[in-house]
Design a protein around this nucleic acid. Structure first.
Lengths: 155, 155
DNA sequence: GAAGGATAATAAGGCTAACTTATTATTTGC
DNA sequence: GCAAATAATAAGTTAGCCTTATTATCCTTC
């Protein structure tokens, strides 16, 4: 039985959610004249929180490859939102920091995403939503661990 | 006041989760010699469940554009996993059905995704996981509704 | 019963985000 | 002091999504 794959199974749900959310965010960012892609926003958010980090550390923390980050940083740097400075402790390495020019943008992004979150969360009891985000975080962290383990084994 | 964007906020969590899950799935699919991308798998899953559907209905149900679906179906049809037949009731339309050749693949996909689900869910109490997937579904459906409403208003 | 607008599929083309592999400069460990 | 590891990046690929425009066919309304 069940030789049909359930399109409501976990994996599909997550990708569905991600795509729909991305569309919704695209629309609202456009409406808010906020010129920023998801990848860029994610980098900016992580970098802002980190203060000053090496690229490789940032990439690992974000769970993406160094090269992917490098490309995203190129765009942000061109727009003056991020600065690359040589790491005095290691001449191969560069330190990333967010510039003040990014402040306004960060604010806007925050407003838009808070708006979406409110619209979505409003449908549900507070406790449910809170539990939901806790689980999201836990599952993500579990996957990050699996990823790190896999790479360690492969090496 | 919080001029830094939280990388653990809802939107980022979802995209993180999606990307990490995709990576994990890619790896396991490769290991299982299962030649199938996520988009293709998703189409197959939805089509298999639907039985025989018009493309436009399938696209709407999946929450993607008609053109996106058309491209994915091209690949699946070339591999003989899916059939397009003219709809007798409307000569513009085509009916999609999954062929028997897809059975084995569907099985494999199901096994792999069940494996991932087990590995992830194993970390958490049953009730928590169950509640989690319920919320995932609810939030996705909410986004689908928002999307549909938005398109209706735009028209 | 024809005209005009909607709808189904798709061709064409663009973008983002991710990947891999290979290169260069540098550091570190032996 | 040399070999192996590491940091960033250049180059090139892929998937998945989008939009716009085209063609064929329906449907409605007068």
């Amino acid at each position: 039985m069940a030789r049909t794959l359930d399109p409501d199974s976990f994996g599909f749900l997550v990708t569905d959610l991600s795509r729909l959310l991305r569309n919704e965010a695209d629309q609202r960012f456009k409406d808010a004249r906020c010129d920023m892609t998801h990848g860029e926003g994610r980098v900016l958010a992580h970098a802002a929180r980190a203060g000053t980090v090496r690229q490789n550390v940032l990439a690992e923390r974000m769970g993406i490859e160094a090269m992917t980050l490098s490309g995203l940083l190129d765009r942000l740097e061109t727009r003056g939102l991020v600065k690359r400075t040589p790491d005095p402790a290691d001449r191969r390495a560069k330190l990333i920091s967010v510039t003040e020019a990014a402040d306004a943008l960060l604010d806007k992004v925050q407003q838009v995403s808070a708006g979406i979150r409110t619209d979505l969360a409003g449908e549900f009891p507070d406790a449910d939503w809170q539990q939901f985000t806790i689980m999201l975080k836990a599952v993500r962290d579990r996957l990050l661990t699996m990823r790190a383990d896999g790479q360690a084994n492969a090496a």
